[in-house]
Amino acid sequence: MNSTPRDRDDDGRARSARPRDGLGRPLPYGEKGVERQPEGVVRTPDETLVEAQRLLDAGMPFHAHEVLEDAWKSGPEAERGLWRGLAQLAVGLTHAARGNATGGAALLARGAESIGPYVSAMPYGIDVAGLTRWAGALSDELRREGAVVPAADRAPRLRAGR
């Protein structure tokens, strides 16, 4: 049995207090990590997309995933598949950047499938067709080459023309 106490939040849920790097990997206690995204923040769809894009462009897809996950959990039921799929795309890029080609390809495919039903609506200007193409191309590359992907260089554009 592990005798190390687990970090807990104010509600008693397990929450790691370890610092994390830009790809969300835990660092040893006491090291300087990147600032974590607060959980449970309710943002407008526009605020969510702007913040997630900023984080993706900065090479921090794990942190973008946390922002998108908040929208998935707090948004209307009819949009949950959209936000869940966007979060999965960000996690897929996270795995690809960490060198986990198999996990990255799987999550990119799952994310593309989740956002697919929204392609004709383009909610909030989200480029669903472009994101689906991006995810397919990156997934194919990961399956074929299995290389580590630089997250910032391969970050998708969430909205068309932005």
Results as ranks from 00 to 15, higher is better:
E69M: 07
N100H: 15
A121H: 14
L107E: 09
A52N: 03
P38E: 07
E35F: 06
G104L: 03
R110D: 13
A96T: 09
E47V: 10
G111M: 04
W83S: 03
G99K: 11
P123W: 09
T102I: 13
G33I: 00
A97S: 14
G125H: 08
R84M: 01
V41Q: 06
G103C: 10
F62I: 07
W83L: 06
P61D: 13
P76S: 14
G92V: 01
Q88V: 03
R43P: 01
E69D: 15
L82K: 02
G116R: 14
I126P: 00
R43E: 06
R84L: 08
L86C: 02
R80H: 11
A87Q: 01
K73Y: 08
P117R: 10
G111F: 02
A96L: 05
P61N: 12
A97Q: 09
E39R: 13
G125E: 05
A58H: 08
P38A: 12
I115C: 05
T48G: 04
A105V: 06
A78I: 10
E113N: 15
P76W: 07
A121G: 11
G33W: 00
R36E: 05
Y29H: 02
L108C: 11
M60W: 12
I126G: 00
W72M: 04
A90G: 07
A78H: 12
V91E: 00
T102P: 08
E113M: 12
L89Y: 09
A52M: 09
D70I: 07
S114R: 09
E39H: 11
G104V: 05
A52R: 03
E66I: 01
H95Y: 13
V128L: 06
P76D: 14
P117M: 12
D46L: 08
S120E: 15
A97T: 10
A90E: 00
V119A: 15
A101G: 13
P123D: 07
D57I: 00
G111H: 05
S120L: 13
G116K: 14
G81T: 10
H65Q: 12
R80F: 01
E66K: 05
A71W: 04
T48E: 00
S120V: 13
V67G: 06
E113Q: 15
P76Y: 10
D57Q: 11
T94A: 09
L49A: 10
L49D: 00
G85P: 00
V128C: 00
G99S: 14
G125L: 11
E35M: 11
R98K: 15
P26E: 11
G40H: 07
G81F: 02
A101P: 09
A96C: 06
E51S: 07
R98L: 14
V50M: 06
R36D: 10
A101R: 07
Q53A: 08
T44N: 08
R84E: 04
T48I: 07
E69G: 03
V34E: 01
A58I: 10
T48F: 02
L107D: 01
A96D: 04
A96Y: 00
T102E: 14
E66M: 01
G99M: 13
A97C: 11
E66T: 06
L49H: 01
P76R: 14
E35L: 09
A58T: 12
L56Y: 08
A101I: 09
G99L: 11
G103W: 08
A52S: 14
G116V: 09
G75H: 04
L27I: 04
P28Q: 03
L82W: 04
V42N: 05
V91P: 01
H65G: 03
D46Y: 04
G125K: 10
A87H: 02
G99E: 13
R36H: 05
E31F: 07
